[in-house]
Design a protein around this nucleic acid. Structure first.
Length: 201
DNA sequence: AGTTGGATGGTCT
DNA sequence: GACCATCCAACTG
């Protein structure tokens, strides 16, 4: 969730990927500690935020003990509270990009208004955009209730969910077994997944 | 409905 | 100089 001057944004995490640490050839931790991945090597429960493809940001939760550099990438979130704030945040980030096709604010706003709620954060960079996650959030304690960006326990009394597993996305060049290990986890049938995850893939 | 290619910049070889 | 833990518009059929 994100709580700031504009209000409250809450999303339910429906898709994640696990990254194992330095031995995981698909992990940013593979080359060892660098300035970019430093927060991965920090304490668990803190954020690791990185930039991909020069324009997008992605949010991870550090999971392993201090120094282990394992983490979980938040790949998709189902918007629950603050839908319009998420839409505004998506628009802000789209306009911040200098892509020619996104330069017209009116057109961009119109396109964004047409996106169904359940697709607003259906991808790792979309999660970061909808929650205004920036590199400055990296290293922050996601379990600190005083922080703007934080994790909360799942709502109690929800119906039990079925979890589906599959290969991680975009790591084909990592080599085996890292490219094929089933470390992508998703809520079965969620309409907010970054891409479908069928049982047995 | 599925495929393709462009945007964009830090990081590592 | 190449490579990306991506997204989306513009194609094809």
């Amino acid at each position: 969730m994100r709580e700031d001057g504009a209000g409250l944004r809450v999303g339910r995490i429906v898709e994640v990927e696990a990254y194992g640490g330095q031995e995981d050839r698909a992990s940013h931790a593979r080359p060892g500690r660098t300035r970019r991945n430093a927060s991965m090597f920090g304490p668990p429960g803190h954020a690791y935020v990185y930039r991909v493809y020069g324009m997008h940001r992605c949010l991870n939760v550090v999971t392993g003990p201090d120094g282990a550099a394992s983490a979980v990438l938040i790949r998709a979130v189902e918007p629950v509270v603050g839908i319009e704030l998420m839409r505004v945040a998506r628009l802000e980030r789209a306009l911040a990009s200098r892509r020619p096709d996104r330069l017209d604010p009116a057109a961009a706003g119109h396109r964004l208004a047409a996106i169904p709620v359940h697709r607003l954060a259906a991808g790792p960079a979309l999660v970061a955009a909808a929650l205004s996650v920036d590199l400055a959030d990296g290293g922050g304690d996601l379990l600190d209730p005083a922080r703007s960006l934080r994790l909360e326990p799942a709502l109690p009394a929800g119906p039990p969910v079925q979890v589906v597993v599959g290969r991680r996305v975009g790591v084909a060049s990592a080599g085996e077994p890292w490219a094929s290990v089933a470390w992508r986890f998703a809520v079965a049938g969620s309409p907010s997944l970054s891409k479908p995850l069928l049982p047995g893939s």
